[in-house]
Amino acid sequence: MLIAVGSMALMGGVLGGVLGLASRYLAVKENPLEQELQSLLPGANCAQCGYVGCGQAAAALARGEAPVTLCPPGGKAVAERLARKLGVKADLSGQVDKEPEFALIDEDLCIGCTRCIRECTADAILGAPKQMHTVLLDNCHGCAKCFKVCPTEAIKMCKVPVTLSEWHWDSPQAHSGRLH
């Protein structure tokens, strides 16, 4: 009994030590900046930037290969945050904010295949196999991943309508070319 406990403890200690040393000396070099940049991105891995996911996008940003304006769902807000983190001056003049969208499922066309549910990274689609699905509008952030996989084209992307409480005055310069 004592021998068994002792040997197990010894093995545990030795192997733990080996693991600890390995994690220190054999660690993969990771840019801490990547982590920070990734925390600024939405994290939905929607791939609209052209990279596989937010992690890869953050890596590209850290290497300086991607512009800070790469994230369409994040819009200007994310671009500005990234620019501040990277200490670069973002040229946002060319950046047209993609209007926020949400997915809507046409319930007559939905066959309940659950493919969209598996795609959704924000748990915004509710449904079960061979049951009608629906989108929880509060959770949907318009990444359009579900839109791409729907076999019956039952999903369409709609513009989020401007509400009274969200509307604001446009800049006085917007309409009258030159205003002082």
Partner: peptide
């Protein structure tokens, strides 16, 4: 614009939270 930016930032944070939970 400031209110809009704050809303956008809140939305991004919310999405990140949802993704983490997911």
């Amino acid at each position: 614009r400031l209110a809009e930016k704050a809303r956008e930032a809140r939305r991004t944070d919310r999405v990140r939270q949802l993704v983490e939970v997911h």
